[in-house]
Design a protein around this nucleic acid. Structure first.
Lengths: 229, 229
DNA sequence: TCTGTCAAGTGGCCTGACCAGTCAGAATTG
DNA sequence: CAATTCTGACTGGTCAGGCCACTTGACAGA
């Protein structure tokens, strides 16, 4: 019973997340200067290149602005959200998904064709394999949910689900999943929920599909809430 | 008069831009593997850390995906934003609204403030007046539903409702409403449903609000089905 | 045929160094 | 004394070379 998974997360992502938290919590306020790369490296116990990578990630993400020879500064929130609709909190997006996706699952159970079932089970199989290795496959997760949406027989709903997932990825690329991925029990729970969901759809049981999806999303929502409180 | 300004741009930004161009131009196709960091460094005549920084920037930007021990890959382009919204049938849009709006109404009943109540009742009043004259006010209808969405406390859901209404207007400007407007009994029924809905929200009764909205949309959906069969 | 091993290649991370902007304050000059 | 210049201690930008962990596929052994 190996209990590995010490920390698969890349260091620069961890550091970027940490700084993101500090900014979000107000420890670093807009306009304020961050410690220098060398100072951060020493305090965090990592090398300067690694800190640099985190800084660059934050700059690309639009959270900070780097001035050569001066330092890195927290950007004002107004200029931060110049990209279209990216200030949706992950929890809000989860709430929206809890409204839409259960019904989408029910519709998929009614309208999905035999070919769709095969694809769905294939994705589930991939997910099972990844989970068996103690890893989380965000790609499989995404494929599974979008697959249901694409076969629900309602194009507007399909586009809504796609949009929610795109926004979701902007928000928490890695952040939550890497937290979640460290907990084997969470992984297995989610896999079981997905399995139940896929079986319900393949058995053309819309009520059970709806309930399974709601159960799954509620669980994930709860995990996300815990992770950030 | 020296004419310097060779290139103030940071190297890793130049490299990231260059790769972005190549991806955009199709030289690197989705799913394809990029050259290794070492190879890129050599070909571009820069150091590996610099290439790494560019790679990380592209990863954060969502253009590529980096797999440890394997390489960097161009991500699949998934842009659902296509122009032709015309293949969204009005009935499909109604179905989508039936999924989303009841829950939006329930949330609005929980989160709407006193100021929101006033606006809501004002819109309802306008609608009642129009109906009394035997006319249908699409403007009031739209305002009422969007007002609920704006006060549901969930920005993604709000945007979804707005988008559905925008698509709806493209679809049936006049067509259905003119048919419906000729039947006084239909007008009065819809007014009564709206009134019940607004009262439920103002009484902070989410369950009743949800039910009222569902009842209302089901009725409209039924009328639309009849009109086109 | 199947299985386990292992070497090559990849990204992740480190040490240590030099360069080029920036800016405040010391030194110089009027 | 005031204005100017100069200096040096910061900052981030870049480089070189190296070690490690992971992934993969070929290959030898069962």
């Amino acid at each position: 019973m190996p209990f590995q998974t010490v920390s698969n997360r890349k260091l620069y992502v961890q550091i970027a997340d940490q700084i993101t938290d500090l900014i979000g919590r107000g420890e670093f306020k807009p306009g304020q200067q961050l410690p220098s790369e060398r100072e951060l490296a020493q305090k965090l116990g990592v090398s300067r290149p690694t800190v640099r990578e985190a800084i660059i990630a934050l700059e690309i993400a639009g959270l900070i602005e780097v001035r050569v020879g001066v330092g890195a500064f927290v950007r004002e929130r107004r200029e931060m959200s110049k990209l279209p609709a990216s200030d949706h909190s992950p929890l809000e997006i989860m709430q929206a998904r809890m409204v839409v996706e259960p019904e989408v699952a029910a519709l998929a159970a009614l309208n999905m064709t035999g070919q769709g079932f095969v694809a769905l089970k294939s994705v589930l199989s991939d997910m099972k394999e990844e989970t068996g290795r103690g890893r989380w496959s965000q790609e499989s997760d995404r494929k599974l949910h979008l697959n249901l949406a694409e076969h629900c027989g309602n194009q507007p709903l399909n586009e809504i689900v796609h949009r929610l997932w795109d926004e979701r990825e902007e928000e928490l690329s890695g952040r939550f999943h890497q937290h979640m991925g460290s907990l084997a029990v969470v992984l297995k729970t989610i896999l079981r929920q997905h399995t139940k969901l896929v079986e319900a759809v393949c058995n053309r049981d819309p009520a059970l599909a709806r309930m399974s999806m709601h159960e799954h999303l509620s669980y994930v929502h709860g995990q996300m809430s815990e992770a950030w409180e």
